[in-house]
């Protein structure tokens, strides 16, 4: 079925009456996923939004439970508030990332119910990519920009409309409500996309492990500022910190995004820090993205969206890391250069 581009806004308004529809919008100079309201301009042209849809499923700050203490006894009260939501216009790199978040939060012995509820109440409408950015390299991780995985409904741009196809049961169920806006039509052949950036990531995992002690990391990490920009814009980063906010006898415990590049990320009581230097923190970030995660879950934690390349204040570029490590490996220089230089906490 085809959704004509003129009917797009009517469809969104209909969806918005029953659920919060997050669409890519340009606000204050940045494109991000924001709730659709009557008459807001939807920005489906750009390859990717500056900020990923991660915050709709895994908000930056989320209350776990509230507590109250009266004299000696304490009562806890779990806070859960979810509304139906629709993610509209999600690219394949972001749907891939949502799958990775699902693996982290919903598998392995413990299920994070906060994430589970949001995930169950979210309909994901993917939109095939037509024209990648300079920093996009999702194909390097085997992601098909035209038809990603992990979405409920897949739209493909056919020039004057979008070809709509349901990928999951939930998708077909949701499509019934769309029928008034759809017209008959066939899917046109997908256009060949040209990526300015394509890398061979096959042996990146091994070369990283080999180069773990290489001096390359010292020079790379020296220019890293230790800020959290890369982690906060990355669609797959999921580390969080927990803290509480008191108000006399009551208060609430919450979790909030954390970044492994922060200096106090792995700080323990008594100021002992297993990763004291910027080098170890940055190395751990790239290793987790490109090696550790695939050891545990089988797929890379980098979806090649290139957001961190665009926004890193120091210009550190994960694609350059992949290239450099494979070239260093290629040159047989596994132990070349002094072992980890004795660096000092910074």
């Amino acid at each position: 079925m085809i959704l004509k581009k003129e009917r797009l806004n009517d469809l969104l308004e209909a969806l918005a009456s029953k659920a919060t529809v997050y669409v890519p919008r340009e606000l204050d100079g940045q494109t991000r996923f924001a709730p659709f309201a009557k008459g807001s301009a939807v920005e489906l042209g750009k390859a990717k939004t500056v900020f990923s849809p991660k915050e709709t499923l895994f908000p930056q700050t989320e209350t776990l439970y509230t507590y109250a203490q009266l004299g000696e006894d304490i009562t806890l009260c779990e806070t859960v508030n979810t509304t139906n939501q629709v993610l509209f216009g999600v690219r394949s790199c972001d749907t891939y990332s949502i799958e990775r978040l699902d693996e982290v939060f919903l598998t392995r012995t413990f299920i994070d119910t906060l994430y589970l509820e949001r995930r169950n109440n979210t309909l994901i409408v993917a939109l095939g990519c037509t024209e990648p950015d300079r920093s996009c390299f999702c194909t390097s991780f085997g992601i098909d920009p035209a038809a990603g995985t992990g979405a409920d409904i897949q739209l493909t741009d056919t020039g004057d409309g979008y070809f709509v196809e349901a990928l999951t049961g939930r998708g077909t169920e949701a499509l019934q409500a769309w029928s008034p806006f759809l017209t008959e039509g066939q899917k046109t052949a997908a256009r060949e996309l040209t990526f300015s950036l394509a890398l061979d990531t096959s042996n990146v995992k091994d070369s990283l492990e080999q180069l773990f002690e290489h001096a390359y990391w010292n020079d790379l990490s020296m220019k890293c500022l230790g800020c959290g920009t890369c982690a906060f814009v990355c669609p797959t980063c999921h580390c969080f910190d927990m803290s509480q906010n008191n108000k006399g006898n009551t208060g609430y415990r919450f979790r909030t995004w954390d970044s492994c590049t922060f200096s106090d990320y792995s700080m323990m009581a008594g100021f002992h820090n297993p990763r004291p230097t910027k080098m170890r923190r940055l190395r751990n970030r790239f290793m987790h993205k490109l090696s550790f995660f695939s050891d545990r879950y089988g797929s890379s934690l980098c979806c090649g969206c290139g957001r961190c390349i665009e926004l890193c204040p120091a210009g550190i570029d994960i694609s350059r890391v992949i290239e450099d490590t494979s070239s260093l490996m290629g040159a047989g220089a596994e132990q070349q250069g002094s072992t980890a230089v004795k660096e000092v906490a910074s």
Partner: peptide, 15 residues
């Protein structure tokens, strides 16, 4: 912030 936007959107759409 996102929550605030969601709240506004809910108000506008669901009145």
């Amino acid at each position: 912030s996102l929550e605030q936007e969601t709240l506004n959107a809910v108000q506008e759409n669901q009145g």
